[in-house]
Design a binder for these strands. Structure first.
Length: 232
DNA sequence: CCTCGGATCAGCT
DNA sequence: GCTGATCCGAGGA
């Protein structure tokens, strides 16, 4: 890892338990821009900056925890900030738990060191970071292998869109992406709203998140571009 | 038990 | 755009 990216990784403070212990949709949006850092067996750190997340919430038939605890989703009922890793086909996907039975899927990130591959898509993101099923249940707040660091910069613009690859509750806009990031997975959210502006989370808390505002797309003109072609 | 299909991805048409 | 890989968790055709 280069020195530049290494120092960049020290910038944000580690996200605390109360950060994750909030409504999942809000956590999903405010995780955008946060750094996810994973320490490998060799002590090497691999890190990305999150650019895309999805919220899986209560009363959400697409949520693995929709029907309550099972052996697979056990870690979704652990403390906020726990990692839930599950397998789909030949890959694994990772989530950060918020409240019991709810979590944020980590869908894509921007690499923070050049030797990383493309952390675009939840399976590739886990592969790039070296996350496996063995990481299911680790604590991102106090654990040693996994850290999540607050986004250092100012406010960012976030687009909301339907989640990817699900059949049930397919139209709920619970997918969030940094507007303009080239690392967002496909299908890209529309280039035009609705956006929300997310302010930085402050060290005193979480209270700063209440400043989150929503900016509505101007409906003047009405050039709706790039309609999604088909639901799955 | 047995079956179904998936919070995916790469590769091909 | 569409399909196959590939396999296990969850629910009951």
């Amino acid at each position: 890892m280069t020195e530049a990216s290494s120092s960049r990784l020290r910038e944000g403070r580690r996200l605390s338990r109360p950060f994750f212990d909030r409504p999942t949709q809000r956590v999903a949006r405010e995780l955008l821009g946060a750094a996810v850092v994973v320490v490998g067996n060799d002590g090497r750190e691999r890190a990305v900056r999150l650019v895309e997340t999805e919220a899986y919430v209560h009363d959400d038939p697409a949520n693995h925890a929709y029907r309550g605890p099972t052996e697979r989703n056990r870690s979704m009922f652990e403390r906020p900030g726990t990692l839930y890793v599950y397998r789909i086909h030949q890959v694994v996907c990772a989530n950060l738990v918020t409240r019991p039975g709810e979590a944020v899927l980590l869908r894509a990130g921007a690499p923070l060191s050049p030797e990383l591959g493309r952390p675009v898509g939840p399976g590739r993101l886990c592969r790039v970071l070296g996350l496996t099923l063995a990481d299911d249940g680790v604590d991102a707040v106090t654990g040693g292998r996994l850290r999540v660091l607050a986004r250092p910069g100012g406010a960012v613009l976030v687009a909301a869109a339907p989640r990817v690859g699900i059949r049930r509750a397919a139209d709920r806009p619970l997918r969030f992406a940094l507007v303009g990031s080239p690392w967002v997975s496909r299908p890209r959210p529309p280039a035009v709203g609705p956006f929300s502006e997310v302010s930085p989370t402050r060290s005193r808390g979480v209270a700063a998140s209440r400043r989150t505002r929503t900016t509505r797309r101007r409906s003047s003109g009405g050039g709706r571009s790039g309609g999604r072609s088909a639901g799955r």
